[in-house]
């Protein structure tokens, strides 16, 4: 158990709970034919969440200060993949499914383990084309195809 994380978490959940309580006050208080409006449920939940996070905060006081051997986390790879995933999500529509997926997989494979370019390119290409073909052509689903400027 990490004392710091749990403290921050209890703060955040407390704020979230309070925010829901306060904001539920702005929702209409009555529903037609009922005196229990749409604000009641979120208000109660916000209250309970607030109380629980106070309880969690008090519990963190009792944690023993244990210094565990910190495992070396691979933040570099993680950040590269995370940024790549965010870019992938943002560029999916402008670039189209095939190109963005191909690029993301290329970056992803090479970040996890360098080398093996031929295999990397082959798997990325067959995944992005394969999924697009199966989904958009065979099953007639909606996926952004190639961008307009690319096909012309």
């Amino acid at each position: 158990m990490s004392k710091t994380f749990d403290r921050y978490a209890s703060f955040i959940f407390f704020i979230v709970g309070m925010a829901f309580m306060i904001e539920s006050g702005r929702i209409s208080h009555s529903a037609y034919g009922s005196n229990v409006g749409p604000n009641v449920f979120p208000f109660l939940l916000g209250l309970i969440l607030g109380l629980l996070s106070i309880k969690l905060f008090i519990e963190t006081m009792k944690y023993q200060n244990e210094r565990k051997e910190k495992e070396a986390l691979d933040y570099k790879k993680f950040l590269i993949i995370l940024v790549a995933a965010i870019l992938y999500a943002l560029l999916l529509e402008p670039l189209g499914y095939i190109i963005s997926t191909f690029l993301f997989l290329l970056v992803g494979f090479q970040t996890i383990e360098k080398g093996g370019w031929v295999k990397t390119v082959l798997i990325s290409a067959s995944f992005s084309f394969g999924v697009y073909y199966l989904f958009a052509e065979v099953l007639k689903g909606t996926l952004p195809g190639l961008p307009a400027w690319f096909s012309s």
Partner: peptide
Amino acid sequence: PKYLIPIIIAISVFGVYAVQVNTFDLI
């Protein structure tokens, strides 16, 4: 795992986009 991890991410993105069709859900 080299191939598994990025492909799981790609399947997640595909799956969510296929059902929701918007960028908001991807973020």
